Amino acid sequence: MQSTGAEPKRTQRYVDEAYRLVLEKPGVEEVLIMNRSGVPVKTTMGRQDALQNACLYDNLREKCQAFLQKMEPPQNLVMLRVRTKQHEVIITPDAKITILVVQNARDTYLGSLYDK
């Protein structure tokens, strides 16, 4: 039996459930779930794109973590959000898996104001 403060196990069922929940969100275009080593486990991307994005993410994570350690030494990266005019990438790492989500960055609220 697990104590109340323990992290849940990152089983295939856990990965499948996280994948399903992310895909249900509006505007999601791509999902990439990686294991602790940065290897794609489940994705909507092609194999080459998934491997390339996993590698690029790992470089970005290392740089962000180094930056955070210089700012406040006990801090860890919890979430990273990068937005361009066309896409928004949200990265959420934890001890066992990392979820990378690419979504449409079109702002429907502002778009509706300009359409009037």
Score class of each variant (00 low, 15 high):
Met1Gln: 10
Met1Trp: 11
Met1Tyr: 12
Gln2Ala: 15
Ser3Phe: 07
Thr4Lys: 07
Gly5Ile: 10
Lys9Phe: 13
Arg10Glu: 12
Thr11Trp: 10
Val15Leu: 07
Val15Trp: 03
Asp16Trp: 00
Glu17Leu: 11
Leu21Glu: 13
Gly27Cys: 04
Leu32Gln: 05
Ile33Asn: 00
Ile33Gln: 06
Pro40Gln: 06
Lys42Ile: 05
Met45Asn: 01
Gly46Pro: 09
Gly46Lys: 12
Gly46Ala: 12
Ala50Thr: 01
Asn53Phe: 10
Cys55Thr: 15
Leu56Gln: 14
Asp58Phe: 14
Lys63Tyr: 02
Cys64Val: 08
Gln65His: 06
Ala66Cys: 03
Phe67Cys: 08
Leu68Glu: 07
Leu68Arg: 09
Gln69Asp: 13
Lys70Asn: 11
Met71Lys: 12
Glu72Ala: 14
Asn76Pro: 01
Leu77Phe: 07
Leu80Ile: 11
Leu80Gln: 14
Val82Ile: 14
Thr84Asp: 03
Gln86Pro: 04
His87Gly: 01
His87Ala: 07
Glu88Gly: 02
Ile90Leu: 14
Thr92Leu: 11
Pro93Ser: 06
Pro93Leu: 05
Asp94Val: 06
Ile97Pro: 06
Thr98Leu: 05
Thr98Cys: 08
Ile99Ala: 12
Ile99Asn: 01
Val102Cys: 01
Asn104Thr: 00
Asn104Gly: 00
Thr108Leu: 12
Leu110Val: 04
